[in-house]
Design a protein around this nucleic acid. Sequence first.
DNA 1: GTTGATAATGCTATATTATAACAAGTTATT
DNA 2: AATAACTTGTTATAATATAGCATTATCAAC
Lengths: 153, 153
Amino acid sequence: MAISPKKLSQILELAEKLCRERGVRLTAQRKQVLELVCAAEQPLGAYDILERLRSRMDNPTPPTVYRALEFLLEQGLIHKLESLHAFIGCSHPEHPHASQFLICSDCGDVSEIESDKIAEGLRKAEESTGFKAKRPVIELLGTCAECQLEPSE
Amino acid sequence: MAISPKKLSQILELAEKLCRERGVRLTAQRKQVLELVCAAEQPLGAYDILERLRSRMDNPTPPTVYRALEFLLEQGLIHKLESLHAFIGCSHPEHPHASQFLICSDCGDVSEIESDKIAEGLRKAEESTGFKAKRPVIELLGTCAECQLEPSE
DNA sequence: GTTGATAATGCTATATTATAACAAGTTATT
DNA sequence: AATAACTTGTTATAATATAGCATTATCAAC
């Protein structure tokens, strides 16, 4: 189930808008990486992105990719899945949030959730410890509802 | 503030006990890796461990380390910090739990917490999505209470 | 519009983290 | 001792990520 072209261009326009407002530059390169990440079914590794960039630009190298990813992460336009070493488009870049992911080990599907309960728990933990979180990494690795039905596939 | 020798041997004894009960083998190699990880101030990377193993055995190689780590992770005797690519001793290996970590980017200190609120939030999220989590990764990167006091150090 | 500062890119090399593959040795049980 | 299952030894290499430095682009100030 690929993302629709319409939805994709909406994402890109929103990204343009946010960057304009913030006074940062969504350059062609960065935009292409964002587009690749957002258009992908699954989270992409940096070298997956590198591979796909070949058809769009001349001789991309790892730094090209990692620099773009760094920018996009800073701007909250994508997330990094630490446990997969992979990147995924952000579902709602317009408001900052503690990203929370459900990662199915069977089908590889990843869904971003926004649980208030979890957010609340995190806030409480910060409160009681005095810790100030800048980047929460919440990744639940396991089996999605669909894959639990199937014997194994 | 290093861990006391007494505390360390308690940890090792508990590990022995748990492995015995489970019918798995805490071999000398695995025990040494566990000891190094638990004795360390900070989380250790696999190659840090490799380095430290040199004084204890002959010509250790990456697979030696990774195999031991894999075993120790399976047994819940250590945790992997995905965002740091590093390993840390488990605070309470006797009962399984969703490990939750506060990772200070300033001083590098890592503390394991057990927030019921967070655990509760995770449970709720599973309930409402039908997702079954096998390995939760909860890592809050930020600044610990102490480091917030200091101007910068 | 030239100058100078800042940011972004190009490019090569290399660091860091992790696993594959297969041979050899150990352990526990028959 | 024979067997099966597990553990280790060893070499090689895969996969992920960054350092460092030269070059180019952008934009504001003069």
